[in-house]
Amino acid sequence: MKKIRLLQKHSLFCLLIALCILMGGIAAEELSPEERGLQIAQAAWEGDTGYGDSISELYMTLRLGSGQDAKRELRIRTLEVSDRETRAMVIFDTPADVRGTALLSHSFTDKSDTQWLYLPEIRREKRIAGGGRSGPFMGSEFSFEDMSSQRVEKFTYKYIADEVLNGITCHVIERYPVEKGSGYTKQVAWLDTKHLRVQKVDYYDRRSELLKTLSSHGYEQHEEKYWRPTTMEMLNHKTGRSTLLEWRNTKFNNGFTTRDFEPNALRNAR
């Protein structure tokens, strides 16, 4: 009897363990769509961070319809300061009337961005208030929001499905902006399952209507790890206008320090 009991006890224990493992396994497989969406976003972010610093030239073509184009050239420098903070400096080269103008932003995970605008004519760096993130960036189809860093914390997520897009298997996730100043109610993003690179994003405006679609192409790998697109095209479905963004001469490990991203460094930027 005793032996049986012991055995029973033992098997009960085994059963419990097996049950735990099983339940754990089920739990892993049965992540809620929200958790799965967040997991994908986090993995994509982690695969994309830790690069230290970067510098890129940006060529924008604003397609205004009827064959008219407007061009903008700018340079972007970024620095990862910590897990919580990223800094970016944008220097405008054309159009000529804004030549030398520069924008510095310190982005944080847990608070709103700090921004300075540099006006070369009077050599003044001006701290600017937040907001206006939904407005167009230099008259293009990209908003300031689209141009800023897409940190994980800026959205809540929902996994929708896996889907083949242009021959590439992608996770489709919906993301909902957290900040109330956002111009969007929803974004639907296609990330390829292999490298979690954003292939396409649909943007839904405040009335939940499809407003814009972003397509990213020509991914190149840097430092044997970081994938960066060479072209991004934003199409506005309501106006028919589009903006082409070309990234060139992206370089990492430039030895930037926080000091290069302070407001008083703006006047030395070139």
Partner: peptide, 14 residues
């Protein structure tokens, strides 16, 4: 004081 009204009347105008 200074205040900016962004995207007034759902236009791109600030």
């Amino acid at each position: 004081i200074e205040h900016t009204f962004y995207s007034v009347f759902n236009s791109p105008i600030d």
